[in-house]
């Protein structure tokens, strides 16, 4: 069985679907830009204050934007029966979950990483922090998608599962938030950001191995 080819067809299919409903898809990205653009208006244009809170604000906004889009991972496939077809195929369900998480990150996480320089300028983030902000987002946003997939898999069978999903997923997002901002703070203060970044990388590896298996298992329960 050629698992890589199946993964590639799944990602291709989901990217095409994402492109066909791009209006809905861009919502989280717009949300992120709006939050960051409004912050300086709210707290005043004083550069020093903004710079102090820059990394935390960008990370919180990224986290909330990811959460807004989590429902996209499985819901439509469960509702139109595509998940049943994937289920009766001989492909392991965890592999399909992995493909869907990769696509989710490509359409929600990757734009956040690419937008980071713009957000940094809006928030007066000191130069020293920019590269580390991008690095921390690149390592942290896949973790958000992976952890989120478990939460969505558990709540996809429930009609109004939005609130429950937030309650399940937010506590698990806190460590990512803490180490993401810590890395940027370290870099701004002139210390090495390696420690928090490595912890983020460890979290990514941990989530990458366990989240697809857990989400597949949760999905099975949700379907029955």
């Amino acid at each position: 069985m050629n698992l890589l080819r199946i993964l590639w067809s799944l990602i291709q299919r989901d990217l095409r679907l994402a492109w066909r409903s791009r209006g809905e898809l861009l919502n989280p990205v717009f949300f992120l830009i709006l939050v960051i653009a409004l912050f300086p208006l709210g707290v005043g244009p004083e550069g020093k204050l903004l710079a102090r809170i820059a990394s935390g604000t960008v990370w919180v906004a990224a986290l909330l934007a990811t959460m807004l889009s989590l429902d996209l991972i499985f819901r439509s496939d469960v509702e139109d029966g595509s998940m049943e077809q994937m289920f009766v195929s001989q492909t392991p369900l965890s592999w399909i979950v992995l493909g869907k998480v990769i696509t989710h990150w490509l359409v929600t996480g990757l734009p956040l990483v690419l937008l980071a320089p713009l957000l940094a300028i809006l928030m007066h983030l000191p130069q020293a922090g920019l590269v580390v902000l991008i690095q921390s987002l690149a390592l942290g946003t896949p973790v958000l998608s992976l952890i989120g997939s478990v939460g969505v898999a558990l709540t996809v069978g429930i009609r109004k599962g939005g609130m429950l999903l937030s309650l399940l997923v937010l506590p698990l997002y806190v460590p990512v938030l803490i180490f993401g901002t810590a890395a940027v703070e370290n870099a701004i203060a002139g210390m090495s950001p390696a420690g928090p970044l490595l912890i983020l990388a460890a979290m990514l590896l941990f989530a990458l191995t366990l989240a697809p298996l857990t989400a597949a298992w949760a999905l099975k329960i949700s379907l029955s």
């Binding site: 299919r13 095409r16 066909r20 409903s21 439509s76 139109d80 029966g81 595509s82 049943e84 077809q85």
Partner: peptide, 8 residues
């Protein structure tokens, strides 16, 4: 259920 995507 259909088992295929309406947008494809």
């Amino acid at each position: 259920k259909a088992g295929f995507k309406d947008d494809l």
